[in-house]
Design a protein around this nucleic acid. Structure first.
Lengths: 173, 173
DNA sequence: CCGAATATGTCAGTGTTGTTGACATATATG
DNA sequence: CATATATGTCAACAACACTGACATATTCGG
């Protein structure tokens, strides 16, 4: 059922255009994760460890609830992975200062090193794709990808890290 | 280690640009798969079933080896999922004509209906993102995404379905 | 201050999806 | 005919998700 809301832009979208979008996401994600997965396997970790390490590195001092909101998994799932990372010395937990129920997470030096190693591969792949496609394509890529993300997360993802206040918890009713 | 091959395009890539690329892929894939996953759960299937149904619908008559090459999983993993789909009447297997060792796969009417239902959600999401971003952005999106895919699969993904000879012997015109 | 809500953690059980390794059958091919 | 290929199957295992129940510490509102 083609969603042809006539008030909006009319961009003629063939079924093949949409199908290609689906497949691009499948193949790109498949290949984007393959190499880090292989590295992780060598040290007995999996993709879930990578995600946790990545986002703790991205938002130092993030608390557990915020990390759960990003990953969209249950606390029991995260707990297993996070516990392992803490026990093996990749992540530190410190009690929050303003709210002492919170555990603020950060990478140890070892954790930061692993994060760099894993992400380096992905950065290289992205850099190569960006260079091959050119700056205008990169801008288009961003616009489309943002449009694929749930509306409630778009702002957060698009925000520059400097501008992004580390996810401060606006506690509401 | 910034991959600054000086002979290529120089597109100034900040660390944030690459980081954003990583995150766009994570968030977009997370949200792109969430709704189909919920639907699949209701009928006792998972994402792996979706993938199999999708690609069998995409390449009617595809054989097992070709499907394995796309999914990049082991035959034992595929076998479990495929067997279930066959037993429950979503996929048909027919012996190949030119090579009778092969099992050519296709969707039953029930399988095609499920495929449409699952993909409709993803098509809608892609269509919305494409419309919001505009045609130029869509072209950029494609270029970057293709660049992220392993070189050996780029041609196949980019090929129009009409132009794409269904991977092997086009038994079905 | 007290009770409710919140942030986090843990135990136990379950399901999907991936893996490896070994082995079986049918068919194709040189 | 011997070997390679396409597929299937059995068994064991691991990663990572889930639900449900319960525990503890802390914050917050009335």
């Amino acid at each position: 059922m083609p969603d042809l809301r006539p008030g909006l832009q009319h961009l003629y979208l063939r079924d093949e255009d949409l199908r290609l979008g689906i497949e691009l996401l499948f193949y790109a994600y498949r290949d984007f994760t393959a190499e880090p997965d292989r590295m992780l396997e060598e040290i007995g970790f999996g993709r879930a460890h990578h995600r946790a390490i990545y986002f703790v590195g991205r938002y130092p001092g993030i608390n557990v609830g915020e990390l759960l909101a990003i990953l969209r998994i249950t606390k029991q799932s995260l707990s297993r992975v996070l516990g392992e990372l803490v026990r093996k010395g990749y992540i530190l937990q410190r009690q929050g200062t303003s709210d002492r129920r919170q555990r603020r997470l950060e990478l140890t030096e070892q954790g930061a090193a692993l994060e760099r190693k894993l992400s380096e591969n992905q950065r290289r792949r992205i850099a190569a794709a960006y260079r091959a496609a050119g700056p205008a394509a990169v801008e288009g890529f961003r616009r489309v990808m943002l449009g694929l993300i749930d509306e409630r997360d778009r702002r957060k993802v698009a925000a520059e890290p400097a501008k992004a206040p580390p996810l401060a918890t606006p506690r509401r009713a």
